[in-house]
């Protein structure tokens, strides 16, 4: 029981560190708009968009999808194809292109 209490205290102590760690790179949307999906797959619903000129924070990447957060607090997953130009302009390493990528 004392070990459990000790671990709870350790976890509580680490919480502020976890909060400080949220320092995400920010990029500007350079295409007319990007689609925010609910999960990292194009088959999941689009619940919002981020428009041209908006700054978004890139929280994480999974496979070829990026989780972003807009300045209004909206979160969603954007495909690598839609976010690639913004990442390149911001100097962030993007994934290598694939033959299936769509370039309008």
């Amino acid at each position: 029981m004392s070990y459990l209490r000790w671990w709870i205290w350790v976890c509580c102590g680490l919480l502020p560190l976890a909060a400080q760690a949220e320092d995400y790179p920010s990029v500007e949307i350079l295409v007319p708009f990007v689609e925010l999906h609910t999960a990292p797959d194009e088959r999941y619903p689009i619940h919002d968009i981020a428009e041209h000129g908006q700054q978004v924070s890139v929280i994480k990447r999974r496979a070829r999808w990026y989780k972003v957060r807009t300045s209004e607090g909206k979160q969603g997953w954007v495909s690598d194809e839609q976010l690639r130009s913004s990442l390149t302009a911001a100097g962030l390493a993007s994934l290598p292109e694939t033959s299936s990528d769509y370039h309008p």
Binding site: P25, I59, K60, R62, Y66, G91, L92, A93
Partner: peptide, 9 residues
């Protein structure tokens, strides 16, 4: 320091 994007693969 260039901020890196965290990956979750």
């Amino acid at each position: 320091g260039i901020k890196q994007i965290k990956s979750q693969d």
